[in-house]
Design a protein around this nucleic acid. Structure first.
Length: 445
DNA sequence: TCTGGGGTCCTAGGACCC
DNA sequence: TCTGGGGTCCTAGGACCC
């Protein structure tokens, strides 16, 4: 039996842990740049605000006051880690699938015992972290996913746990599940299936394999088999080392000056390298991509990318930054305007499988010792104590985030101050928020 | 005015090999 | 006149997920 634990409205629920006055109100958490809604409370969903709704369109859905919050991913990750620890106490083979979801195997052969255990888990997460979670369990991950969805949506299910184990139950749920609610079927495949008159999961499971292979690929066949109770999806949980690491950002506005943009590239390269070292890995290939603003019809659009192979696998900020600049220089064009750039590192291996470069061994050792020292200092005194010089100041590329008036109370609470005595803050820079988050991290460490 | 960021896997097609 | 068959590896692009 597989279980899937899925947090309800995760980012909004995290914000509510720190500001209970948000309970009962329509709340959305916004993406970077305050661009669009990436998490919605039930009240916001009830108003019809869709996922990904641009922030400036939210007012079109209601005259009610919707609380809009800029995202604080460091906080969400911290709460996620606590939840995963609680799940880990009962789980066999916990697969952390995303920041708010995890699959795991259940210890008992008996459905009643498993159900009882999971009810306790839901209660414990609520009690010790304060985030509502729903859990579904079934013979395969895809069915468990559907079960957790049912557990979340069914208001009469106060325990928020749903087992999908009896065949008659599975049949009746599949008949009520639309194809695009199936894990693994997205927009394109949904459109194809609908055009053939396939609307629900019970129709989908009766389709011939050859047809599924034709309109999709082997994964679509696997999805069908999973719904029929055959376990055949494997997960590369994020707890296993990454195959690629990416860092990118949409700028607050379009940029043209090469220096402004290369500062961003360096900053992203720096973050990629730091993450590699945290994961005890090293990468061989660095890719940089640049993109214009596809919403600005008045500007010529340009988009390009370049990958370079480094001499050896490395996790050195200095080397990765140097190669990222080489890649960037080869695709930068003076005549265009830029809205987004990103850095990605791939061909990742664990450090202990690295081959030493015999021509450059001395430099490698030096870099490695330097990076260890940098990481130690940044861990001890805050994440931004030692950085590449061009990334020291907040760059032109920094995203716009203006939805802080509602957060001021939580921010002060968060940094240990009594909100009642805290000054009202209507605009907080990213750096200040980062510092709050760093202090939070340190306290918890 | 205003539209995110970070991942994985699969397939087709080209280059190259014997 | 006539031009095979079977591989591997790499890359770009497209699909999906949260």
């Amino acid at each position: 039996m597989y279980a899937l634990a899925d947090c309800n409205n995760f980012f909004v629920s995290c914000e509510r842990v720190f500001d209970p006055t948000l309970n009962g109100k329509p709340v959305v958490v916004l993406s970077n740049n305050d661009g669009c809604a990436i998490s919605r409370s039930n009240e916001a969903k009830a108003l019809g605000i869709p996922m990904g709704c641009p922030a400036f369109q939210i007012k079109n859905y209601t005259t009610e006051n919707v609380v809009m919050l800029s995202a604080r991913h460091i906080l969400y990750q911290d709460l996620s880690n606590r939840i995963m620890r609680i799940l880990g106490e009962v789980a066999i083979n916990l697969e952390v699938y995303s920041v708010d979801e995890a699959f795991f195997k259940l210890p008992f052969d008996d459905d009643v015992k498993n159900h009882k255990l999971l009810v306790t888990v839901v209660k414990n997460v609520q009690k010790y972290v304060g985030v509502p979670v729903s859990i579904g369990f079934a013979a395969t991950r895809t069915l468990a996913k559907i079960a957790s969805h049912v557990a979340k949506k069914d208001p009469s299910n106060v325990n928020r746990v749903m087992g999908l184990t009896r065949q008659d139950e599975i049949d009746s749920i599949l008949a009520r599940t639309k194809v695009d609610d199936i894990w693994g079927i997205g927009r394109k495949l949904n459109a194809k299936l609908l055009s053939c008159g396939i609307h629900d999961a019970s129709q989908f499971v009766r389709l011939p394999k050859s047809y599924l292979q034709k309109i999709g690929n082997i994964n679509l066949v696997r999805t069908q088999q999973e719904l029929l109770g055959h376990d055949c999806v494997s997960i590369n949980p994020v707890t296993i080392a990454h195959k690629s690491i990416m860092n990118s950002r949409t700028f607050g506005h379009v940029l043209k000056k090469k220096g402004d943009i290369s500062d961003a590239v360096l900053s992203f390269a720096q973050s990629c390298a730091a993450q590699l070292r945290r994961e005890r890995s090293a990468a061989l290939t660095v890719t940089v991509y640049v993109r214009g603003d596809h919403f600005r019809k008045d500007l010529p659009f340009y988009s390009n990318s370049c990958s370079v192979k480094m001499q050896t696998h490395t996790a050195s900020t200095i080397e990765i930054a140097q190669y990222a600049l080489i890649a960037f220089n080869s695709i930068f064009r003076d005549e265009y305007f830029y809205r987004k750039v990103g850095v990605m590192v791939t061909d990742i291996i664990p450090v202990n499988e690295m081959q030493l470069n015999i021509f450059n061994a001395e430099q490698e050792v030096k870099h490695s010792r330097l990076m260890t020292a940098v990481d130690d200092i940044n861990r001890r005194y805050g994440s931004k104590q030692i950085m590449l010089a061009p990334t020291l100041t907040k760059g032109e590329w920094a995203p716009q985030q203006n939805h802080f008036s509602h957060q001021s109370k939580t921010l002060r609470f968060y940094s240990g101050m009594n909100p009642r005595y805290a000054p009202r803050v209507t605009n907080v820079s990213i750096d200040e928020r980062q510092n709050d988050e760093d202090r939070f991290d340190q306290r918890n460490a």
